[in-house]
């Protein structure tokens, strides 16, 4: 059953040197409980698609449906209880003057969820940050620690859908593995649905059943995990990406 449906989405930003047509007619159906991947060139519109779902991009055309209900321009509080986003740039998305504790307790207060103490402690543990980080400010954290605070903030509301924009690209492999395992486990346990942007095909193949490849604002192909693993791609960009990911350990990238 389709939980999130994006139909013919177009996003146009007003730019100084003319409008920027960042998303051009993208359609994606995400089934409940599925993990859906978005890959594509830098600047192809991946983050903008997620932001449009979250109500943070100027949609010029198209419809976004959540559980059969078409979303209007504004997202209400109930929407953010169900749909949470982890942004690509964790620095920009964490308030510089708020401690980790405040970052995590504020959404709980807004959505009137009790047991704040327990939930905060658990969320920090889950992303591999202990209680010692609770009263730090963002600038007192490393890049990967900030990223994990952003993931904890999204998880703490126990949403149904998580929009994950490069959630682990700032993490070393050991912590990435822990975060990916956590996301996988929560999906099974709580029946969560993910839409996940990543430039790492290994991550997408591990996490996602299906994925769409974007180029210059359009979806140019949609593959299953099996297609990806069998290297069955038809688009040149996807093929280049596959070739580069495959040969990386052996081939010297700078010959």
């Amino acid at each position: 059953m389709t939980l999130l449906s994006i139909q013919d989405l177009n996003v146009v930003f007003p730019g100084k040197s003319g409008p920027v047509h960042a998303v051009r007619g993208v359609s994606i159906d995400v089934t409940r409980g599925e993990s859906y991947g978005l890959v594509g060139e830098s600047g192809s519109g991946k983050s903008t698609v997620l932001r449009a779902v979250a109500g943070l991009a100027p949609v010029s055309e198209g419809t976004i449906t959540l559980d059969g209900q078409t979303l209007g321009r504004k997202r209400d509080r109930a929407f953010y209880r169900r749909v949470q986003m982890v942004f690509q740039d964790p620095y920009g998305s964490l308030h510089p003057r708020h401690t980790v504790d405040r970052v995590l307790s504020e959404p709980l207060a807004i959505h009137r969820m009790g047991d704040a103490e327990k939930r905060i402690a658990r969320a920090l543990d889950e992303v591999g940050l202990g209680q010692g980080f609770r009263f730090r400010f963002p600038h007192q954290l490393s890049g990967g620690q900030r990223q994990r605070v952003a993931i904890a903030r999204a998880l703490i509301l126990e949403p149904e859908i998580m929009l994950l924009d490069e959630p682990t690209s700032a993490l070393d492999a050991s912590i990435q593995a822990e975060v990916l395992n956590l996301l996988d486990r929560l999906r099974v346990e709580r029946g969560l649905t993910y839409v996940m942007v990543s430039h790492d095909l290994g991550v997408v193949a591990h996490m996602c059943e299906r994925l769409s490849v974007m180029e210059q604002g359009r979806v140019v192909e949609t593959l299953t995990r099996a297609d990806l693993r069998a290297l069955r791609a038809t688009q040149p960009y996807t093929q280049r990406l596959l070739a580069a990911s495959r040969g990386f350990t052996r081939a010297d990238p700078v010959t």
Partner: peptide
């Protein structure tokens, strides 16, 4: 870290 392998190279 934000670039895919094709641009990274």
């Amino acid at each position: 870290s934000a670039l895919d392998v094709t641009v990274q190279v």
